[in-house]
Protein backbone atom coordinates (compact mmCIF):
# COMPACT_ATOMS: atom_id res chain seq x y z
CA UNK A 1 0.00 0.00 0.00
CA UNK A 2 1.20 3.48 -0.90
CA UNK A 3 1.90 6.02 1.83
CA UNK A 4 -1.16 7.84 3.13
CA UNK A 5 -2.08 11.31 1.96
CA UNK A 6 -2.50 13.97 4.67
CA UNK A 7 -6.19 14.23 3.91
CA UNK A 8 -6.72 10.51 4.49
CA UNK A 9 -5.01 10.66 7.88
CA UNK A 10 -7.19 13.59 8.86
CA UNK A 11 -10.34 11.76 7.80
CA UNK A 12 -9.14 8.77 9.81
CA UNK A 13 -8.60 10.99 12.85
CA UNK A 14 -12.05 12.47 12.48
CA UNK A 15 -13.54 8.97 12.16
CA UNK A 16 -15.27 9.99 8.96
CA UNK A 17 -14.21 6.89 6.96
CA UNK A 18 -16.03 3.64 6.39
CA UNK A 19 -15.02 0.80 8.71
CA UNK A 20 -13.30 -1.06 5.84
CA UNK A 21 -11.22 1.93 4.84
CA UNK A 22 -10.44 2.76 8.46
CA UNK A 23 -9.10 -0.74 9.10
CA UNK A 24 -6.93 -0.56 5.94
CA UNK A 25 -5.41 2.68 7.21
CA UNK A 26 -4.90 1.25 10.67
CA UNK A 27 -3.02 -1.70 9.17
CA UNK A 28 -0.85 0.64 7.13
CA UNK A 29 -0.06 2.80 10.13
CA UNK A 30 1.21 -0.25 12.01
CA UNK A 31 3.81 -1.03 9.36
CA UNK A 32 4.73 2.41 7.96
CA UNK A 33 6.97 4.52 10.21
CA UNK A 34 6.67 7.59 7.98
CA UNK A 35 2.87 7.63 8.09
CA UNK A 36 2.94 6.82 11.79
CA UNK A 37 4.99 9.95 12.43
CA UNK A 38 2.63 12.03 10.31
CA UNK A 39 -0.34 10.61 12.20
CA UNK A 40 1.27 11.43 15.55
CA UNK A 41 1.95 14.97 14.38
CA UNK A 42 -1.71 15.37 13.50
CA UNK A 43 -2.76 14.01 16.88
CA UNK A 44 -0.45 16.48 18.60
CA UNK A 45 -1.74 19.33 16.45
CA UNK A 46 -5.34 18.39 17.05
CA UNK A 47 -4.73 18.50 20.81
CA UNK A 48 -3.06 21.88 20.52
CA UNK A 49 -5.81 23.32 18.38
CA UNK A 50 -8.53 21.98 20.65
CA UNK A 51 -6.94 23.88 23.54
CA UNK A 52 -6.45 27.38 22.10
CA UNK A 53 -4.10 30.02 23.45
CA UNK A 54 -6.46 32.85 24.32
CA UNK A 55 -5.49 36.47 24.83
CA UNK A 56 -7.38 38.09 27.68
CA UNK A 57 -9.56 40.86 26.21
CA UNK A 58 -9.03 44.33 27.72
CA UNK A 59 -11.56 45.23 30.41
CA UNK A 60 -12.29 48.51 28.64
CA UNK A 61 -14.35 46.69 25.99
CA UNK A 62 -17.25 45.79 28.30
CA UNK A 63 -17.03 49.15 30.09
CA UNK A 64 -17.06 51.21 26.88
CA UNK A 65 -19.90 49.25 25.33
CA UNK A 66 -22.04 49.53 28.45
CA UNK A 67 -21.38 53.25 28.60
CA UNK A 68 -22.30 53.73 24.95
CA UNK A 69 -25.43 51.58 25.08
CA UNK A 70 -26.90 52.40 28.44
CA UNK A 71 -27.05 56.17 28.71
CA UNK A 72 -27.66 57.34 32.26
CA UNK A 73 -31.36 57.64 32.93
CA UNK A 74 -32.73 60.75 34.70
CA UNK A 75 -33.52 60.21 38.37
CA UNK A 76 -37.07 60.54 39.68
CA UNK A 77 -36.01 63.31 42.07
CA UNK A 78 -34.67 65.43 39.21
CA UNK A 79 -37.95 64.97 37.34
CA UNK A 80 -39.98 65.95 40.42
CA UNK A 81 -37.78 69.01 40.96
CA UNK A 82 -38.42 70.09 37.39
CA UNK A 83 -42.15 69.52 37.74
CA UNK A 84 -42.21 71.63 40.91
CA UNK A 85 -40.19 74.42 39.29
CA UNK A 86 -42.39 74.54 36.20
CA UNK A 87 -45.55 74.52 38.33
CA UNK A 88 -44.32 77.49 40.38
CA UNK A 89 -43.38 79.37 37.22
CA UNK A 90 -46.64 78.60 35.44
CA UNK A 91 -48.83 79.61 38.36
CA UNK A 92 -46.71 82.69 38.96
CA UNK A 93 -47.27 83.71 35.39
CA UNK A 94 -51.03 83.31 35.80
CA UNK A 95 -50.80 85.31 38.99
CA UNK A 96 -48.95 88.16 37.31
CA UNK A 97 -50.88 88.12 34.07
CA UNK A 98 -54.27 88.28 35.67
CA UNK A 99 -53.01 90.62 38.36
CA UNK A 100 -54.22 88.32 41.06
CA UNK A 101 -52.67 90.41 43.80
CA UNK A 102 -55.43 92.95 43.20
CA UNK A 103 -58.07 90.41 42.25
CA UNK A 104 -61.13 90.57 44.45
CA UNK A 105 -61.42 86.77 44.61
CA UNK A 106 -57.84 86.41 45.87
CA UNK A 107 -58.35 89.21 48.32
CA UNK A 108 -61.44 87.42 49.54
CA UNK A 109 -59.54 84.17 49.82
CA UNK A 110 -56.72 85.90 51.69
CA UNK A 111 -59.15 87.38 54.11
CA UNK A 112 -60.86 84.02 54.53
CA UNK A 113 -57.55 82.30 55.10
CA UNK A 114 -56.61 84.91 57.70
CA UNK A 115 -59.76 84.26 59.58
CA UNK A 116 -59.68 80.47 59.30
CA UNK A 117 -57.27 78.14 60.97
CA UNK A 118 -58.02 75.06 59.03
CA UNK A 119 -55.49 73.57 56.60
CA UNK A 120 -57.13 75.05 53.46
CA UNK A 121 -56.63 78.51 54.89
CA UNK A 122 -52.98 77.70 55.63
CA UNK A 123 -52.38 76.37 52.10
CA UNK A 124 -53.90 79.48 50.54
CA UNK A 125 -51.70 81.62 52.75
CA UNK A 126 -48.53 79.71 51.78
CA UNK A 127 -49.32 79.83 48.05
CA UNK A 128 -50.21 83.48 48.26
CA UNK A 129 -46.90 84.22 50.06
CA UNK A 130 -44.89 82.31 47.45
CA UNK A 131 -46.59 84.24 44.64
CA UNK A 132 -46.09 87.52 46.43
CA UNK A 133 -42.38 86.73 46.78
CA UNK A 134 -42.03 85.77 43.12
CA UNK A 135 -43.89 88.93 42.17
CA UNK A 136 -41.56 90.95 44.37
CA UNK A 137 -38.51 89.33 42.73
CA UNK A 138 -39.83 90.23 39.28
CA UNK A 139 -40.37 93.79 40.41
CA UNK A 140 -36.81 93.98 41.77
CA UNK A 141 -35.33 92.65 38.54
CA UNK A 142 -37.35 95.15 36.63
CA UNK A 143 -36.08 97.92 38.86
CA UNK A 144 -32.52 96.64 38.43
CA UNK A 145 -32.78 96.89 34.64
CA UNK A 146 -34.31 100.31 34.95
CA UNK A 147 -31.43 101.58 37.09
CA UNK A 148 -28.54 99.93 35.24
CA UNK A 149 -29.71 100.10 31.59
CA UNK A 150 -32.33 102.79 31.94
CA UNK A 151 -34.89 100.48 30.34
CA UNK A 152 -38.32 99.71 31.62
CA UNK A 153 -39.03 96.18 30.48
CA UNK A 154 -42.33 95.90 32.19
CA UNK A 155 -43.72 93.23 34.40
CA UNK A 156 -45.69 91.73 31.49
CA UNK A 157 -42.55 90.92 29.54
CA UNK A 158 -41.11 89.25 32.61
CA UNK A 159 -44.32 87.36 32.92
CA UNK A 160 -44.08 86.27 29.31
CA UNK A 161 -40.47 85.11 29.83
CA UNK A 162 -41.64 83.08 32.79
CA UNK A 163 -44.31 81.51 30.63
CA UNK A 164 -41.77 80.53 27.96
CA UNK A 165 -39.37 79.19 30.60
CA UNK A 166 -42.11 77.12 32.17
CA UNK A 167 -43.04 75.72 28.72
CA UNK A 168 -39.42 74.69 28.18
CA UNK A 169 -39.39 73.01 31.56
CA UNK A 170 -42.62 71.15 30.78
CA UNK A 171 -41.08 69.94 27.52
CA UNK A 172 -37.92 68.83 29.37
CA UNK A 173 -40.07 66.87 31.81
CA UNK A 174 -41.84 65.21 28.91
CA UNK A 175 -38.50 64.19 27.35
CA UNK A 176 -37.17 62.82 30.62
CA UNK A 177 -40.34 60.84 31.25
CA UNK A 178 -40.25 59.38 27.74
CA UNK A 179 -36.61 58.38 28.25
CA UNK A 180 -37.41 56.70 31.55
CA UNK A 181 -40.50 54.87 30.39
CA UNK A 182 -38.70 53.64 27.25
CA UNK A 183 -35.81 52.40 29.42
CA UNK A 184 -33.24 51.55 26.71
CA UNK A 185 -34.36 51.48 23.14
CA UNK A 186 -33.37 48.32 21.23
Amino acid sequence: MECLRDEKIQHYLEKSLSSVEASRIRDHLIVCKKCQLKYQQYVQMENGLADPVYTEPPAQIVKNVMKRIYVKLPTYSSIFALIAASMVLLVSWIYIYFDFSNNSLIQALKLTSNSTYNWIGQVIKIISNIFSSVYAIFKSINKFFEIIFNVNIGIEIFGFSVLILSMILVYAIYLLLVKRSGKQKI
Binding site: P57, V62, Q184, I186
Partner: peptide, 23 residues
Protein backbone atom coordinates in the same frame (compact mmCIF):
# COMPACT_ATOMS: atom_id res chain seq x y z
CA UNK B 1 -34.22 39.58 29.73
CA UNK B 2 -32.20 42.04 27.65
CA UNK B 3 -35.21 42.74 25.46
CA UNK B 4 -37.15 43.41 28.67
CA UNK B 5 -34.57 46.06 29.53
CA UNK B 6 -32.15 44.16 31.76
CA UNK B 7 -28.78 45.87 31.70
CA UNK B 8 -27.12 43.15 33.78
CA UNK B 9 -28.14 40.43 31.34
CA UNK B 10 -26.46 42.21 28.47
CA UNK B 11 -23.31 42.58 30.52
CA UNK B 12 -23.46 38.87 31.28
CA UNK B 13 -23.89 38.01 27.61
CA UNK B 14 -20.95 40.23 26.71
CA UNK B 15 -18.72 38.65 29.31
CA UNK B 16 -19.64 35.23 28.00
CA UNK B 17 -18.67 35.98 24.39
CA UNK B 18 -16.02 38.64 24.89
CA UNK B 19 -13.05 36.28 24.98
CA UNK B 20 -13.94 34.26 21.90
CA UNK B 21 -14.99 37.27 19.85
CA UNK B 22 -11.95 39.34 20.78
CA UNK B 23 -9.56 36.49 20.07
Amino acid sequence: KILDGSKLSFEELMKKYNKKIYN
